[in-house]
Design a binder for these strands. Structure first.
Lengths: 192, 192
DNA sequence: GTCTATACGAGGATAGAC
DNA sequence: GTCTATCCTCGTATAGAC
Protein backbone atom coordinates (compact mmCIF):
# COMPACT_ATOMS: atom_id res chain seq x y z
CA UNK A 1 0.00 0.00 0.00
CA UNK A 2 1.25 3.46 -0.86
CA UNK A 3 -0.74 5.47 1.68
CA UNK A 4 -1.83 4.42 5.12
CA UNK A 5 -5.15 6.01 6.07
CA UNK A 6 -6.23 6.89 2.53
CA UNK A 7 -5.59 10.59 2.16
CA UNK A 8 -7.14 13.12 4.46
CA UNK A 9 -6.42 16.31 2.54
CA UNK A 10 -7.44 14.92 -0.78
CA UNK A 11 -10.90 14.02 0.48
CA UNK A 12 -11.33 17.37 2.13
CA UNK A 13 -10.44 19.10 -1.12
CA UNK A 14 -12.94 17.07 -3.12
CA UNK A 15 -15.75 17.63 -0.62
CA UNK A 16 -15.11 21.36 -0.50
CA UNK A 17 -15.02 21.50 -4.29
CA UNK A 18 -18.33 19.65 -4.59
CA UNK A 19 -19.93 22.00 -2.13
CA UNK A 20 -18.67 25.14 -3.88
CA UNK A 21 -19.33 23.82 -7.38
CA UNK A 22 -22.93 23.23 -6.33
CA UNK A 23 -23.31 26.69 -4.84
CA UNK A 24 -21.31 28.80 -7.31
CA UNK A 25 -20.44 26.60 -10.27
CA UNK A 26 -17.01 25.53 -11.44
CA UNK A 27 -16.11 28.72 -13.33
CA UNK A 28 -16.78 30.95 -10.36
CA UNK A 29 -14.95 28.74 -7.87
CA UNK A 30 -11.21 29.36 -7.64
CA UNK A 31 -8.48 27.12 -6.26
CA UNK A 32 -8.08 29.69 -3.50
CA UNK A 33 -11.77 29.40 -2.61
CA UNK A 34 -11.41 25.65 -2.29
CA UNK A 35 -8.27 25.96 -0.16
CA UNK A 36 -10.19 28.30 2.12
CA UNK A 37 -13.23 26.04 2.37
CA UNK A 38 -11.24 22.87 2.90
CA UNK A 39 -8.54 24.35 5.12
CA UNK A 40 -5.89 22.74 2.94
CA UNK A 41 -2.83 24.75 2.01
CA UNK A 42 -1.62 25.69 -1.44
CA UNK A 43 1.27 23.24 -1.60
CA UNK A 44 -0.93 20.38 -0.60
CA UNK A 45 -3.69 21.43 -2.91
CA UNK A 46 -1.54 21.48 -6.03
CA UNK A 47 0.18 18.30 -5.00
CA UNK A 48 -3.10 16.37 -5.12
CA UNK A 49 -4.63 18.22 -8.08
CA UNK A 50 -2.10 19.82 -10.43
CA UNK A 51 -4.84 21.61 -12.39
CA UNK A 52 -8.38 22.73 -11.82
CA UNK A 53 -9.47 20.32 -14.49
CA UNK A 54 -8.15 17.36 -12.52
CA UNK A 55 -10.09 18.35 -9.44
CA UNK A 56 -13.24 19.18 -11.38
CA UNK A 57 -13.16 15.82 -13.10
CA UNK A 58 -12.79 13.94 -9.83
CA UNK A 59 -15.45 15.97 -8.05
CA UNK A 60 -18.00 15.92 -10.85
CA UNK A 61 -17.53 12.25 -11.67
CA UNK A 62 -18.11 11.41 -8.04
CA UNK A 63 -21.25 13.54 -7.87
CA UNK A 64 -22.63 11.95 -11.03
CA UNK A 65 -21.90 8.45 -9.81
CA UNK A 66 -23.56 8.91 -6.46
CA UNK A 67 -26.56 10.71 -7.92
CA UNK A 68 -27.14 7.89 -10.36
CA UNK A 69 -26.71 5.40 -7.54
CA UNK A 70 -29.36 7.16 -5.49
CA UNK A 71 -31.77 7.24 -8.43
CA UNK A 72 -31.14 3.58 -9.13
CA UNK A 73 -31.81 2.60 -5.55
CA UNK A 74 -35.14 4.38 -5.62
CA UNK A 75 -36.28 3.41 -9.11
CA UNK A 76 -35.34 -0.25 -8.75
CA UNK A 77 -36.62 -0.83 -5.23
CA UNK A 78 -39.44 -3.12 -4.18
CA UNK A 79 -43.03 -2.20 -4.92
CA UNK A 80 -45.10 -1.39 -7.97
CA UNK A 81 -43.44 0.45 -10.83
CA UNK A 82 -45.91 3.31 -10.68
CA UNK A 83 -45.29 3.83 -6.97
CA UNK A 84 -41.55 3.91 -7.49
CA UNK A 85 -41.99 6.55 -10.17
CA UNK A 86 -44.13 8.67 -7.89
CA UNK A 87 -41.62 8.22 -5.08
CA UNK A 88 -38.81 9.32 -7.37
CA UNK A 89 -40.68 12.37 -8.58
CA UNK A 90 -41.88 13.50 -5.18
CA UNK A 91 -38.75 12.86 -3.20
CA UNK A 92 -37.37 15.70 -1.13
CA UNK A 93 -34.99 17.84 -3.13
CA UNK A 94 -33.08 20.96 -2.21
CA UNK A 95 -34.92 22.60 -5.05
CA UNK A 96 -33.95 26.21 -4.34
CA UNK A 97 -30.27 25.29 -4.55
CA UNK A 98 -30.70 23.85 -8.01
CA UNK A 99 -29.45 20.55 -9.39
CA UNK A 100 -25.77 19.87 -8.71
CA UNK A 101 -25.42 18.35 -12.13
CA UNK A 102 -27.98 20.26 -14.18
CA UNK A 103 -26.38 23.58 -13.28
CA UNK A 104 -23.10 22.44 -14.84
CA UNK A 105 -24.84 22.64 -18.18
CA UNK A 106 -24.60 26.43 -17.89
CA UNK A 107 -20.99 26.38 -16.78
CA UNK A 108 -18.49 27.33 -19.51
CA UNK A 109 -15.59 25.65 -17.75
CA UNK A 110 -17.51 22.38 -17.84
CA UNK A 111 -19.01 22.63 -21.30
CA UNK A 112 -15.77 23.56 -23.06
CA UNK A 113 -13.95 20.62 -21.48
CA UNK A 114 -14.63 17.34 -23.24
CA UNK A 115 -14.11 15.11 -20.22
CA UNK A 116 -16.36 17.15 -17.99
CA UNK A 117 -19.04 17.68 -20.64
CA UNK A 118 -19.21 13.95 -21.36
CA UNK A 119 -19.55 13.15 -17.69
CA UNK A 120 -22.51 15.51 -17.40
CA UNK A 121 -24.02 14.18 -20.61
CA UNK A 122 -23.80 10.60 -19.40
CA UNK A 123 -25.71 11.46 -16.26
CA UNK A 124 -28.75 12.47 -18.25
CA UNK A 125 -28.68 9.62 -20.71
CA UNK A 126 -28.21 7.07 -17.93
CA UNK A 127 -30.88 8.58 -15.73
CA UNK A 128 -33.36 8.68 -18.59
CA UNK A 129 -32.79 4.99 -19.29
CA UNK A 130 -33.44 4.15 -15.63
CA UNK A 131 -36.76 5.98 -15.76
CA UNK A 132 -37.70 4.49 -19.10
CA UNK A 133 -37.24 0.97 -17.79
CA UNK A 134 -39.63 1.66 -14.94
CA UNK A 135 -42.21 3.03 -17.37
CA UNK A 136 -41.91 -0.09 -19.50
CA UNK A 137 -42.33 -2.21 -16.41
CA UNK A 138 -45.42 -0.20 -15.58
CA UNK A 139 -46.93 -1.10 -18.93
CA UNK A 140 -46.32 2.15 -20.80
CA UNK A 141 -44.31 0.47 -23.52
CA UNK A 142 -45.57 2.70 -26.29
CA UNK A 143 -43.95 6.05 -25.58
CA UNK A 144 -41.80 5.01 -22.64
CA UNK A 145 -38.72 6.80 -23.97
CA UNK A 146 -40.56 10.05 -24.59
CA UNK A 147 -42.27 10.01 -21.22
CA UNK A 148 -38.98 9.19 -19.50
CA UNK A 149 -37.50 12.29 -21.08
CA UNK A 150 -40.47 14.28 -19.81
CA UNK A 151 -40.00 12.91 -16.29
CA UNK A 152 -36.35 13.93 -16.15
CA UNK A 153 -37.15 17.28 -17.77
CA UNK A 154 -39.86 18.09 -15.24
CA UNK A 155 -37.43 17.55 -12.40
CA UNK A 156 -34.69 19.60 -14.05
CA UNK A 157 -37.11 22.34 -14.97
CA UNK A 158 -38.49 22.25 -11.45
CA UNK A 159 -35.00 22.92 -10.14
CA UNK A 160 -34.54 25.84 -12.52
CA UNK A 161 -37.89 27.40 -11.64
CA UNK A 162 -37.52 26.85 -7.91
CA UNK A 163 -34.07 28.41 -7.89
CA UNK A 164 -35.20 31.33 -10.04
CA UNK A 165 -38.11 32.11 -7.73
CA UNK A 166 -36.36 30.99 -4.55
CA UNK A 167 -39.44 28.93 -3.83
CA UNK A 168 -39.34 25.15 -3.36
CA UNK A 169 -43.10 24.88 -3.84
CA UNK A 170 -42.62 25.66 -7.49
CA UNK A 171 -40.81 22.36 -7.98
CA UNK A 172 -43.57 20.58 -6.07
CA UNK A 173 -46.24 22.22 -8.21
CA UNK A 174 -44.52 21.13 -11.42
CA UNK A 175 -44.27 17.56 -10.18
CA UNK A 176 -47.90 17.54 -9.00
CA UNK A 177 -49.02 18.85 -12.38
CA UNK A 178 -47.06 16.19 -14.17
CA UNK A 179 -48.36 13.43 -11.92
CA UNK A 180 -51.91 14.64 -12.43
CA UNK A 181 -51.48 13.96 -16.13
CA UNK A 182 -49.52 10.75 -15.67
CA UNK A 183 -52.20 9.22 -13.49
CA UNK A 184 -55.16 10.67 -15.37
CA UNK A 185 -56.14 7.65 -17.45
CA UNK A 186 -54.63 5.21 -15.00
CA UNK A 187 -57.51 2.96 -13.99
CA UNK A 188 -58.51 2.29 -17.57
CA UNK A 189 -55.30 2.38 -19.58
CA UNK A 190 -52.33 1.06 -17.67
CA UNK A 191 -51.27 -1.47 -15.13
CA UNK A 192 -50.66 0.17 -11.81
CA UNK B 1 -34.17 65.51 -28.18
CA UNK B 2 -30.84 64.68 -26.64
CA UNK B 3 -29.55 62.25 -29.23
CA UNK B 4 -30.20 62.24 -32.94
CA UNK B 5 -30.20 58.69 -34.28
CA UNK B 6 -30.73 57.01 -30.91
CA UNK B 7 -27.35 55.70 -29.89
CA UNK B 8 -25.43 53.38 -32.14
CA UNK B 9 -22.75 52.16 -29.74
CA UNK B 10 -25.11 51.59 -26.89
CA UNK B 11 -27.25 49.23 -28.93
CA UNK B 12 -24.24 47.38 -30.24
CA UNK B 13 -23.01 46.89 -26.69
CA UNK B 14 -26.35 45.52 -25.51
CA UNK B 15 -26.67 43.15 -28.46
CA UNK B 16 -23.16 41.84 -27.99
CA UNK B 17 -23.79 41.39 -24.27
CA UNK B 18 -26.99 39.45 -24.90
CA UNK B 19 -25.21 37.18 -27.34
CA UNK B 20 -22.30 36.48 -25.00
CA UNK B 21 -24.48 36.14 -21.89
CA UNK B 22 -26.45 33.50 -23.74
CA UNK B 23 -23.35 31.62 -24.85
CA UNK B 24 -21.13 31.97 -21.78
CA UNK B 25 -23.20 33.46 -18.99
CA UNK B 26 -22.74 36.78 -17.26
CA UNK B 27 -19.98 35.73 -14.86
CA UNK B 28 -17.78 34.39 -17.63
CA UNK B 29 -18.29 37.37 -19.92
CA UNK B 30 -15.94 40.28 -19.30
CA UNK B 31 -16.29 43.89 -20.34
CA UNK B 32 -13.33 43.30 -22.62
CA UNK B 33 -15.13 40.39 -24.29
CA UNK B 34 -18.10 42.62 -24.97
CA UNK B 35 -15.92 45.40 -26.35
CA UNK B 36 -14.35 42.88 -28.68
CA UNK B 37 -17.67 41.44 -29.83
CA UNK B 38 -19.33 44.80 -30.31
CA UNK B 39 -16.34 46.63 -31.73
CA UNK B 40 -16.93 49.44 -29.24
CA UNK B 41 -13.92 50.92 -27.44
CA UNK B 42 -13.29 51.09 -23.72
CA UNK B 43 -14.04 54.78 -23.26
CA UNK B 44 -17.32 54.45 -25.06
CA UNK B 45 -18.22 51.27 -23.24
CA UNK B 46 -17.80 52.71 -19.77
CA UNK B 47 -19.49 55.91 -20.81
CA UNK B 48 -22.71 54.04 -21.58
CA UNK B 49 -22.45 51.46 -18.82
CA UNK B 50 -20.39 52.53 -15.81
CA UNK B 51 -20.57 49.06 -14.26
CA UNK B 52 -21.14 45.53 -15.44
CA UNK B 53 -24.29 45.49 -13.34
CA UNK B 54 -25.79 48.34 -15.36
CA UNK B 55 -25.22 46.56 -18.62
CA UNK B 56 -26.39 43.21 -17.30
CA UNK B 57 -29.59 44.75 -16.02
CA UNK B 58 -30.35 46.40 -19.34
CA UNK B 59 -29.50 43.33 -21.39
CA UNK B 60 -31.32 40.81 -19.20
CA UNK B 61 -34.42 42.96 -18.76
CA UNK B 62 -34.67 43.33 -22.50
CA UNK B 63 -34.28 39.60 -23.06
CA UNK B 64 -36.94 38.83 -20.47
CA UNK B 65 -39.35 41.35 -21.94
CA UNK B 66 -39.04 40.12 -25.48
CA UNK B 67 -39.22 36.46 -24.47
CA UNK B 68 -42.42 37.10 -22.56
CA UNK B 69 -43.75 39.06 -25.51
CA UNK B 70 -43.06 36.14 -27.84
CA UNK B 71 -44.76 33.69 -25.48
CA UNK B 72 -47.74 35.98 -25.11
CA UNK B 73 -48.15 36.33 -28.84
CA UNK B 74 -48.21 32.58 -29.26
CA UNK B 75 -50.31 31.67 -26.24
CA UNK B 76 -52.92 34.35 -26.82
CA UNK B 77 -53.28 33.98 -30.59
CA UNK B 78 -56.36 32.85 -32.46
CA UNK B 79 -57.43 29.23 -32.39
CA UNK B 80 -58.35 26.68 -29.77
CA UNK B 81 -56.59 26.82 -26.41
CA UNK B 82 -55.27 23.29 -26.74
CA UNK B 83 -53.76 24.00 -30.14
CA UNK B 84 -52.02 27.11 -28.84
CA UNK B 85 -50.54 25.08 -26.02
CA UNK B 86 -49.25 22.45 -28.43
CA UNK B 87 -47.87 25.18 -30.68
CA UNK B 88 -46.09 26.76 -27.73
CA UNK B 89 -44.60 23.47 -26.58
CA UNK B 90 -43.48 22.29 -29.99
CA UNK B 91 -42.15 25.54 -31.33
CA UNK B 92 -38.63 25.56 -32.70
CA UNK B 93 -36.09 26.26 -30.01
CA UNK B 94 -32.32 26.44 -30.13
CA UNK B 95 -32.38 23.69 -27.57
CA UNK B 96 -28.68 22.80 -27.60
CA UNK B 97 -27.77 26.39 -26.75
CA UNK B 98 -29.93 26.33 -23.65
CA UNK B 99 -32.45 28.88 -22.45
CA UNK B 100 -31.17 32.46 -22.43
CA UNK B 101 -33.01 33.10 -19.22
CA UNK B 102 -33.01 29.71 -17.52
CA UNK B 103 -29.21 29.52 -17.68
CA UNK B 104 -28.97 32.70 -15.61
CA UNK B 105 -30.32 30.71 -12.70
CA UNK B 106 -26.90 29.05 -12.48
CA UNK B 107 -25.00 32.30 -12.81
CA UNK B 108 -23.58 33.63 -9.52
CA UNK B 109 -23.28 37.18 -10.83
CA UNK B 110 -27.01 37.16 -11.54
CA UNK B 111 -28.22 35.33 -8.46
CA UNK B 112 -26.26 37.42 -5.97
CA UNK B 113 -27.59 40.64 -7.47
CA UNK B 114 -31.09 41.48 -6.31
CA UNK B 115 -32.13 43.42 -9.40
CA UNK B 116 -30.98 40.73 -11.78
CA UNK B 117 -32.34 37.88 -9.70
CA UNK B 118 -35.77 39.50 -9.50
CA UNK B 119 -35.84 40.05 -13.22
CA UNK B 120 -35.17 36.37 -13.83
CA UNK B 121 -37.69 35.37 -11.21
CA UNK B 122 -40.41 37.50 -12.76
CA UNK B 123 -39.91 35.80 -16.10
CA UNK B 124 -40.90 32.44 -14.69
CA UNK B 125 -43.83 33.64 -12.63
CA UNK B 126 -45.20 35.67 -15.54
CA UNK B 127 -44.71 32.89 -18.05
CA UNK B 128 -46.39 30.37 -15.78
CA UNK B 129 -49.42 32.63 -15.44
CA UNK B 130 -49.69 32.92 -19.22
CA UNK B 131 -49.70 29.15 -19.56
CA UNK B 132 -52.12 28.68 -16.71
CA UNK B 133 -54.66 31.00 -18.31
CA UNK B 134 -54.59 28.96 -21.49
CA UNK B 135 -55.16 25.78 -19.50
CA UNK B 136 -58.12 27.33 -17.76
CA UNK B 137 -59.49 28.43 -21.10
CA UNK B 138 -59.06 24.87 -22.31
CA UNK B 139 -61.25 23.63 -19.48
CA UNK B 140 -58.57 22.29 -17.15
CA UNK B 141 -59.62 24.51 -14.29
CA UNK B 142 -58.88 21.98 -11.59
CA UNK B 143 -55.11 21.77 -11.54
CA UNK B 144 -54.34 24.50 -14.05
CA UNK B 145 -51.64 26.08 -11.91
CA UNK B 146 -49.86 22.80 -11.30
CA UNK B 147 -50.00 21.75 -14.93
CA UNK B 148 -48.79 25.19 -16.01
CA UNK B 149 -45.76 24.72 -13.78
CA UNK B 150 -45.21 21.33 -15.40
CA UNK B 151 -45.41 22.84 -18.89
CA UNK B 152 -42.79 25.48 -18.13
CA UNK B 153 -40.64 22.91 -16.32
CA UNK B 154 -40.69 20.49 -19.23
CA UNK B 155 -39.43 23.19 -21.56
CA UNK B 156 -36.71 24.31 -19.14
CA UNK B 157 -35.71 20.74 -18.42
CA UNK B 158 -35.70 20.05 -22.13
CA UNK B 159 -33.20 22.86 -22.59
CA UNK B 160 -30.96 21.49 -19.83
CA UNK B 161 -31.03 17.95 -21.18
CA UNK B 162 -30.56 19.00 -24.80
CA UNK B 163 -27.59 21.16 -23.91
CA UNK B 164 -26.06 18.46 -21.71
CA UNK B 165 -26.29 15.87 -24.46
CA UNK B 166 -25.75 18.31 -27.32
CA UNK B 167 -28.82 16.79 -28.90
CA UNK B 168 -31.92 18.84 -29.80
CA UNK B 169 -34.03 15.69 -30.16
CA UNK B 170 -33.89 15.26 -26.42
CA UNK B 171 -35.97 18.42 -25.98
CA UNK B 172 -38.40 17.17 -28.62
CA UNK B 173 -38.71 13.81 -26.90
CA UNK B 174 -39.49 15.44 -23.56
CA UNK B 175 -42.18 17.59 -25.15
CA UNK B 176 -43.66 14.64 -27.05
CA UNK B 177 -43.77 12.62 -23.86
CA UNK B 178 -45.50 15.41 -22.03
CA UNK B 179 -48.01 15.95 -24.82
CA UNK B 180 -48.76 12.25 -24.92
CA UNK B 181 -49.92 12.51 -21.32
CA UNK B 182 -51.64 15.85 -21.75
CA UNK B 183 -53.76 14.60 -24.62
CA UNK B 184 -54.30 11.11 -23.25
CA UNK B 185 -57.80 11.52 -21.83
CA UNK B 186 -58.65 14.36 -24.17
CA UNK B 187 -61.75 13.17 -26.05
CA UNK B 188 -63.53 12.24 -22.85
CA UNK B 189 -62.32 14.67 -20.21
CA UNK B 190 -61.69 18.11 -21.60
CA UNK B 191 -62.82 20.60 -24.16
CA UNK B 192 -60.42 20.68 -27.07
C1' DG C 1 2.84 15.77 1.45
C1' DT C 2 2.94 20.42 2.87
C1' DC C 3 4.82 25.25 3.20
C1' DT C 4 6.12 29.91 1.47
C1' DA C 5 7.48 32.89 -2.26
C1' DT C 6 6.88 34.40 -6.77
C1' DA C 7 4.68 35.21 -11.41
C1' DC C 8 1.83 36.86 -15.04
C1' DG C 9 -2.44 37.62 -17.43
C1' DA C 10 -7.37 38.77 -17.01
C1' DG C 11 -11.28 41.10 -14.72
C1' DG C 12 -13.24 45.31 -13.70
C1' DA C 13 -12.73 49.47 -13.59
C1' DT C 14 -10.82 54.99 -13.11
C1' DA C 15 -8.46 59.32 -15.04
C1' DG C 16 -7.79 62.67 -18.11
C1' DA C 17 -7.23 64.19 -22.96
C1' DC C 18 -9.67 64.99 -27.44
C1' DG D 1 -19.08 60.23 -26.80
C1' DT D 2 -14.74 58.14 -27.64
C1' DC D 3 -9.66 57.26 -26.96
C1' DT D 4 -5.43 55.80 -24.46
C1' DA D 5 -3.06 55.06 -20.18
C1' DT D 6 -3.01 53.29 -15.74
C1' DC D 7 -4.46 50.63 -11.57
C1' DC D 8 -5.23 46.96 -8.25
C1' DT D 9 -7.00 42.45 -7.21
C1' DC D 10 -7.87 37.70 -8.27
C1' DG D 11 -7.27 33.31 -10.93
C1' DT D 12 -4.21 29.88 -11.84
C1' DA D 13 -0.54 28.20 -11.39
C1' DT D 14 5.16 27.17 -10.83
C1' DA D 15 9.53 26.76 -7.94
C1' DG D 16 12.07 25.26 -4.38
C1' DA D 17 12.67 24.36 0.62
C1' DC D 18 11.27 21.36 4.67
Amino acid sequence: MTTATSNQSRDRIVSAAQKLFWRDGVTATSPRDIMGESGVGQGSFYHHFPTKHDLAFTAISDTVTSSLMAARLQLQSEGRAYDRLVAYLTRERDAVFGCKIGRLTADPTVMTDNDLAMTVSSYFTDLTVLVRDVLIEQGRVESATDIAHAVVAVVQGGYVMAKATENPDVMRAAVRGFLALLSEGLETSHEQ
